[in-house]
Design a protein around this nucleic acid. Structure first.
Length: 878
RNA sequence: GGGCGCUUAGCUCAGUUGGUUAGAGCGUGUGACUUACAUUCACAAGGUCAGGGGUUCAAGCCCUCUAGCGCCCACCA
């Protein structure tokens, strides 16, 4: 009754299967008091997102858990959504505009926003379609967007709450400024990269004696135009008596004072540091302490402004060169040395960011951090792998205030209005909706804050805002706190930590109990895979060539640490899928008794089963048990290894081969059917498409595989005795095959094998499984003797307590055989020597646990027996 | 400057709480159209577990030092 092609073809099945799931509404979940909830909120991909390997890994992991938990009886919800990704999206649309020769300013805020929405409506679903290609079992009708109306209201609500609590403030500070995106960034959004830079030593002459100097060292000479002091350490003897003296800032010819401040490190550079309060966070603090002037020399696009004198209009790096040239001309550049230092880069466009003085909005983080530190320390939220706990805590304990305002137009506009008539900059009106008038002067001339909020200021609300909080709902009560959050390491600060803080602040509860941090996807050289590096493997290409299940399986089996991927690595998954397919094909081909299922209980009576069947069932249930445990501990690669090993190397390589010649036996058919269908169910969370396709052939009447349960663990089927007995059979077959290969006996040429064992148990066991052994090792005649001399012209081996001989008239080379056996003896004697030394050691005997000692003794006896048998063989070899 | 991770077969990696003779996949070699699957099957070769020191009856695993690689954080201009 086979209907299966000889090869698995993912293209024939995947879209059809996915549609089938969707039509049957199998991804939907809702509050169900009869079941336990399991919920994952998706890390919302950017609306500009295009599926990359990181997404593929991240979402496969989530999908595995969602499907697994559903099949484990949970009400399993995967909440999907998309992030508006302020800067990234605005950049995309601005690039589009640039092609038309326009800027966003040309359009104006309103028109530009219309354009952004148009873009979103046209392209914003791309990533969702791609997630569907991956097989993601998200409850799609719930899909949320961080700029949906409800969601935006939640964001405003939260802003107002924090403002009223005194946790939001506005002020002029040094922030990270991206001159290309022309917006402020948070500390996390400025990524530090080590650059090979230079340290320039510049002479600042004394006002009173232009021939004498103080030399300062700087990496950014252009900022000297904004210097308003030179600072030295008060304890520095070299400069002590110069404190208070006046220098002339070269180029600007401005008098500046030498001041003393203890932050100056006397060991760095010359021990004298130029102070630029408007362009360096350190200097900003010094400036405040010493009431210095704050001279901003830059425009938002990093070109120098009117405060830069003759350098006005130059770009910052152009100015750097010009300034150095001029200093050199004037003989004020003492020297230049190489200097490696970390420089911040915009995480969206990779432009070097500028420390820039500007008025921004901030959230005070320390009060929010405290409860979030506690819940992790108390273990209410657990990180896996656990080492990330420390990373989280370290960041939380040193948390800085969060700059949340962005000078872009795509995002949640800050719900703040200023009265244009009050002329009081501190008169801030914070409100959900546009206020009608100024509460102080009743003027209607109000203006909303231009800035929008950091994208992460909306995504930190994700675990409850997606459920329409602050509205109460059954779903929110049922699914919150969610179960586990799965993400990449670099997202811990951006998102995970902040979600925990938001959860504790607004819901007074943790947002999730587990955080699983997966590795980074790298190429085979270890570089992070990215489009800009051109080293990315496109998951959709892999899906196209190998299939989605192959992509998923290969990714997960390589996960655990960082993943080093190359295209060839996806062959594992493809080959395994094909193996599953063909094993199923074989089973279905031979399954005549479809009704046989009803006889299952009878078949399952252990005492009625042959050894191999007891063995495969024991292996199956052991695997089920271990896979369950692996998933519960987030050891996904371990789970896949277990499944791979069991299905391929135990079920296919041994069991199916063993039963092939008895395939007409009804009970055998039932057994292979049952082992297969249980394996398919257990495999489903990992390889959803192929398992559904096969399931539809195995049990079409039952609906989708997604509605089935993970096979129930039946401990009584785990049979260690059967496993060790079967091992003897396997070892014997392998040993005979080895001899065939060793002596170049063609695979099809039948041979005779004589077993010799005084151990009646082994003898009986092997006799009972004679047929299997003969078949698998292609043996014509297998005879079992209690005592027999080595047959003439035979080679020998020892397995367990059994010797065996293979007569090979004419083929045997006595010397070769002698050497082979001798080296076997030597090998074993070596092991025995170590073992016996241990067993003679009084310390070992007294201190090691009894069972260890006992098993070592047992081993010693077995080895001795084996060596004796081998020695006997060699003796007879004459 | 702190913190973390990695170093195990030619390559990529597993290796639970310390307990046999350290495993897998790929690659390599040999053989096979034996077929549910050549995206297959059988067999094999290949490792002083980065190095030193320590704890222990027992160390790939625990402690310590060293070296190399990688990542993260940090205001040394």
């Amino acid at each position: 009754m086979t209907e299966l092609a000889p090869r698995y073809n993912p293209k024939d099945t995947e879209d059809r299967i996915y549609n089938f799931w969707q039509e049957k509404n199998l991804f939907a979940a809702k509050a169900n008091p009869k079941k336990k909830p399991f919920c994952i909120v998706i890390p919302p991909p950017n609306v500009t997102g295009i599926l990359h390997m990181g997404h593929a890994l991240n979402n496969t992991l989530q999908d595995i858990l969602i499907r697994y938990k559903k099949m484990h009886g949970y009400e399993s919800l995967w909440m999907p959504g998309v992030d508006h990704a302020g800067i990234a999206t605005q950049n995309v649309v601005e690039r589009e505009l640039a092609q038309e020769g326009k800027t966003r300013q040309d359009l104006g805020r309103e028109k530009f926003n219309e354009r952004l929405w148009q873009w979103k409506n046209k392209y914003g679903d791309t990533i969702i379609h791609q997630l569907k290609k991956l097989g993601s079992a998200c409850d799609w009708p719930r899909t949320r967007f961080t700029m949906d109306e409800d969601y935006s209201n939640t964001v405003k609500e939260v802003f107002i709450h924090l403002y009223e609590k005194g946790l939001i403030y506005r002020g002029k500070y040094i922030i990270n400024w991206c001159p290309r995106c022309q917006t402020a960034l948070s500390d996390e959004e400025a990524q530090h990269k080590d650059l090979k830079g230079k340290l320039y030593y510049i002479k600042y002459p004394f006002k009173d004696d232009p021939n004498k100097f103080v030399v300062v060292a700087t990496t950014r000479p252009e900022t000297m135009l904004g210097d308003t002091a030179v600072a030295v350490n008060p304890k520095d003897k070299r400069y002590k008596n110069l404190i208070g003296e006046t220098l002339i800032l070269p180029l600007m010819e401005r008098p500046i004072k030498i001041i003393a401040d203890s932050v100056v490190d006397p060991k760095f550079g010359t021990g004298a540091v130029k102070v630029t309060p408007a362009h360096d966070p350190n200097d900003f603090e010094i400036g405040k302490r010493h009431k210095l002037e704050f001279v901003n020399i830059m425009q938002p696009d990093a070109k120098l402004n009117e405060n830069a004198g003759e350098f006005m209009g130059m770009d910052r790096f152009e100015a750097r060169e010009a300034i150095l040239e001029e200093l050199e001309e004037r003989n004020l550049l003492e020297k230049t040395t190489d200097h490696d230092h970390a420089v911040g880069h915009c995480y969206r466009c990779h432009t070097i960011v500028e420390p820039y003085l500007s008025k921004q909005w901030f959230v005070k983080m320390k009060p929010l951090a405290k409860p979030s530190i506690d819940v992790v320390k108390k273990g209410k939220i657990r990180f896996t792998p656990s080492r990330w706990t420390k990373v989280y805590l370290n960041w939380m304990e040193n948390i800085q205030d969060w700059c949340i305002s962005r000078q872009i137009w795509w995002g949640h506009r800050i719900p703040v209005w200023y009265c244009q008539d009050c002329k009081d900059p501190d008169n801030i009106i914070v409100s959900q909706n546009a206020p009608a008038e100024c509460p102080k002067c009743h003027s209607r001339n109000l203006r909303q804050e231009d800035d929008v909020l950091d994208t992460w200021f909306s995504s930190w609300l994700w675990p409850f805002a997606t459920f329409y909080w602050p509205k109460e709902s059954e779903d929110l009560r049922y699914f919150y706190p969610t179960s586990v959050l799965i993400t990449a390491p670099e997202i811990i600060f951006f998102w995970v930590a902040r979600m925990i803080m938001a959860g504790m602040e607004f819901k007074k509860e943790i947002p999730f109990s587990d955080v699983y941090i997966h590795g980074t996807v790298r190429d085979s050289k270890g570089l992070k895979m990215s489009k800009s590096l051109g080293n990315a493997i496109d998951p959709l290409d892999i899906i196209n060539e190998f299939g989605t299940d192959a992509l998923r399986f290969s990714l997960i089996i390589n996960s655990g640490q960082d993943l080093f991927l190359s295209k060839e690595k996806f062959e594992v998954g493809r080959n395994f899928a094909n193996k599953i397919w063909n094993a199923s094909r074989f089973v279905l081909m031979n399954l005549k008794e479809k009704s046989a299922e009803s006889d299952l209980c009878q078949v399952y009576q252990k005492e009625k089963l042959d050894l191999a069947s007891r063995w495969i069932l024991s292996r199956l249930y052991t695997t089920i048990d271990k896979v369950n445990k692996a998933i519960e501990t987030y050891s996904f690669n371990e789970a896949e290894n277990l499944l791979y090993e069991f299905f391929w190397h135990e079920f296919c390589d041994w069991y199916l081969e063993i039963v092939k010649d008895r395939i007409s036996d009804k009970n055998i058919q039932i057994l292979i059917y049952k082992v297969l269908e249980k394996s398919i169910r257990l495999l489903h969370p990992f390889m959803p498409f192929i398992t559904e396709e096969i399931w539809q052939k195995l049990a079409p009447e039952s609906g989708s595989i997604m509605l089935q349960s993970i096979p129930h663990l039946q401990k009584q089927m785990i049979d260690k005795k059967a496993e060790s007995q079967m091992q003897l059979v396997i070892d014997l077959v392998s040993a005979v095959r080895n001899i065939r290969a060793e002596w170049n006996i063609p695979p099809l040429e039948k041979i005779n094998v004589i077993l010799k064992t005084a151990d009646t148990q082994s003898g009986k066991l092997l006799d009972e499984n004679k047929g299997i052994i003969q078949n698998l090792a292609k043996i014509e005649n297998l005879t079992i003797e209690k005592e027999i001399a080595r047959p003439k012209d035979s080679v020998a081996g020892v397995v367990g307590r059994v010797s065996f001989f293979v007569p090979l008239a004419g083929l045997i080379d006595i010397e070769k055989e002698k050497n082979r056996i001798s080296s076997l003896i030597a090998q074993n004697e070596n092991i025995l020597k170590n073992l016996n030394a241990r067993l003679k050691n009084k310390q070992f005997l007294s201190k090691a646990p009894k069972d260890v000692v006992a098993s070592e003794k047992q081993k010693s006896l077995e080895l001795e027996d084996k060596i004796n048998k081998l020695k006997k063989v060699i003796k007879e070899l004459k």
